[in-house]
């Protein structure tokens, strides 16, 4: 898949943002007043910013609201609803915290649930796609959720929670890469089934339907060199998990906390880049590419 910056930004930021909102909803940390204002501002900047970024890849962003209509069947629609509900609830909850110094617990709990649901529905947009075996795994929501939680915990300054959550996310990540690398093969889809010609012999894509490019190739076919993948995985892993954990293990300091957040953010962004760039859409098979 084409690693479109808007989508990477969206999933990375909104994952973190809703992760943070989740913890805030649970009252971790319990904040009020100015401090609350700042931390909610960060949470909203991330989640809303992410959502806004996602509209950049729309052909018709001005009609984005249409996306809310199909919650019965569409994960993208559901994600929209969850996000809107989460943002409204958490908004009210934040008002309470900032202006009234109140923690309306039930509201927070609800907001936390919807925040998590948002991350989950985002992940389901990808997970549901049988066309992309690397995403079409139960591990995908697990990864999104574990990343959201770990990131949220780091951002929420919950070092005690963050370290185990990061560890969990790190293991999920490794598992995800490992399973992902063989997903296409395991899916059973290949040029033989794609063309129905597999029984006759080995099938090879010969001339493409056009010598130039097209939307499908731009959108779905992106080949990352193996060497690069290995390198990027190391970088991503180090930044997303290793460095933050190390920093969090050090005696607490806001500076290290900030570094941990930034490192995690960068690491997740690289991971997301790989998530897209490495994902093989079966349509590539028709073009002799993966």
């Amino acid at each position: 898949m084409h690693p479109a910056p808007s989508v990477i930004v969206f999933t990375t930021l909104s994952g973190l943002g809703f992760g943070l909102l989740f913890f805030l909803g649970l009252g971790l940390p319990e904040v009020t007043g100015w401090v609350a204002f700042v931390i909610y501002a960060i949470a909203y900047a991330l989640s809303v910013g992410g959502l806004m970024a996602s509209t950049f890849h729309l052909g018709r962003p001005e009609r984005a609201w249409n996306a809310l209509t199909q919650w019965k069947s569409s994960w993208l629609s559901r994600e929209g609803w969850c996000a809107v509900i989460a943002l409204i609830i958490m908004g009210l909850y934040a008002i309470g915290a900032i202006f009234f110094g109140q923690r309306w617990g039930v509201l927070g709990l609800l907001g936390a649930l919807f925040s998590l649901a948002t991350v989950f529905t985002t992940s389901m947009i990808y997970t549901q796609l049988r066309t992309i075996p690397r995403w079409n795994m139960a591990l995908t929501p697990v990864m999104f959720l574990s990343f959201g939680l770990a990131g949220g915990a780091v951002l929420a300054g919950q070092a005690g929670l963050a370290i185990p959550l990061l560890a969990i996310a790190a293991s999920v990540q490794i598992l995800y890469w490992w399973r992902g690398d063989s997903a296409l093969e395991r899916s059973g889809t290949n040029l033989g089934t794609a063309t129905g010609l597999g029984q006759r012999g080995s099938v090879r894509a010969f001339e493409p339907p056009h010598t130039g490019t097209n939307y499908l190739l731009r959108e779905f076919v992106h080949v990352v060199g193996r060497k690069h993948v290995a390198k990027l995985r190391v970088i991503s892993f180090a930044l997303a998990f290793f460095v933050p954990v190390a920093l969090l293990l050090l005696p607490f300091s806001h500076f290290f906390g900030l570094l941990a957040v930034l490192s995690h953010l960068a690491g997740v962004a690289v991971s997301r880049w790989l998530f897209f760039a490495q994902a093989e859409h079966v349509v590539g098979l028709y073009y002799g590419k993966r």
Binding site: T131, Y215, Y286
Partner: peptide
Amino acid sequence: DCIGCGLCAWSCPYGARELDQAEGV
């Protein structure tokens, strides 16, 4: 009604959908 999100093209195994670059649908 289409917002040009591309998701339908992502979900089609056959590459049967193309987002028009001029119209965005």
